[in-house]
Design a binder for these strands. Structure first.
Lengths: 204, 204
DNA sequence: GAGCAAAGTTTCATGCTCTGAAAGCAGGTG
DNA sequence: CACCTGCTTTCAGAGCATGAAACTTTGCTC
């Protein structure tokens, strides 16, 4: 899925593909939220989206993946975003900026995001896969950090450490946000976490 | 598996159970290292351990779990270890001490650990499950941190942040260690990561 | 030791997940 | 319109995972 090109510019075929994909993802999320992961089969999801179950697998490699579509696109977006952050910022500050952007984006789709988090928390077997996608992000981010600070300073494992730790902080902020039902903006929680990181994690 | 009680004290039945379990885990690791995850079926593993495939599932809920038996016991050991760390230490210092202990323990079984890491890196679909176990650890650790610093300072999400970030640092150090084939002790890499955390992640 | 109960293993049956292949259908193109 | 490409469907099949019932081993008791 390219980041350029709106839905209207595509032919009927590609539009139908997007529709089918969205219908499958939506059906999966809705059904699993209702009945739990084990209570929903791929056939149920395909049925609800009005396609064959074989078609489901043309879009998603597994049932779980249909529930976790969102994290996919960030894998390319974050590194790009990190590269275009102001040059004056340290890598830590730049990463914070990128993740703030993501937080804002997620708050606009708060309902969907919260539903997804709910589904994940109710079906712990999904957690792995969520973090797995996060792992691919981590590598991509580490590469972008290395690019940013230059090869000689990148040796020694700083990029890997920074992206691993930064994403961990993001995840904690996100889960904290989902617990406080919208009373605190995710960006505030993220800022809090990054302030602590930058201060060396002093005890409160 | 209790920490008390050696193998000799158990009856024949329990000894056989341990043997079977170990044989299955060993066969799984060996076969997957040779042929890759997709090239090995549960039946292959059961065959190699000379039991029926149904018996395999009496020991492990899935093929993947047979490859990741080790991380299971740390879930209770780390919180205990954290609680018994010297009272003078900050939570960050105590966590560092606990993870150093784990690193030392892993270096004693370096061959096995490296083989396991190799298998995981070659089969990324395992990563999820590994991190899943890690997630349970994270919660247990967060609870132990909260216990350590007291309820009023635990509000505000510090325990969750510290354990998430600390484990991320540990994971990075471990992977870095597995890449440098034993030339650098894992404890050194861990110290490096925690020094950076305590200093607020300054760019190198 | 003989017998008994508990626990573990095996076999059998079953449902779901996921993949490959071949045939059919629709969209885009000359 | 005719054709080609690409997506969907149907069909077939391997592997994963679980439940139930029969069988074997173990450990204990008398």
């Amino acid at each position: 899925m390219d980041s350029v090109g709106s839905v209207e510019e595509l032919g009927r075929r590609d539009r139908k593909k997007l529709e089918t994909r969205a219908a499958l993802a939506e059906a999966a999320l809705r059904l699993v939220a209702e009945r739990g992961l084990a209570g929903v089969t791929v056939e149920d999801i395909a049925e609800a989206a009005d396609v064959s179950s074989r078609t489901f697998f043309n879009y998603f490699p597994s049932k779980e993946d249909a529930l976790l579509v969102a994290p996919a696109d960030v894998e390319t977006a974050w590194p790009k975003s990190l590269a275009s952050a102001p040059a004056g910022l340290t890598a830590l500050q730049a990463l914070r900026l990128v993740l703030r952007g993501q937080a804002e984006c997620m708050e606009q789709r708060a309902e969907e995001v919260r539903l997804r988090i709910k589904v994940i928390e109710e079906n712990p077997s999904l957690l792995p896969r969520l973090v797995s996608g996060g792992f691919a992000n981590e590598r991509a981010l580490a590469a972008a950090v290395a690019e940013r600070i230059g090869p000689e300073r990148a040796a020694g494992g700083y990029p890997e450490l920074l992206s691993a730790v930064g994403l961990a902080a993001f995840r904690v902020a996100m889960l904290r946000w989902s617990r406080t039902k919208g009373s605190v903006p995710m960006t505030d929680l993220l800022d809090d976490a990054f302030d602590r990181l930058a201060a060396g994690l002093p005890e409160p």
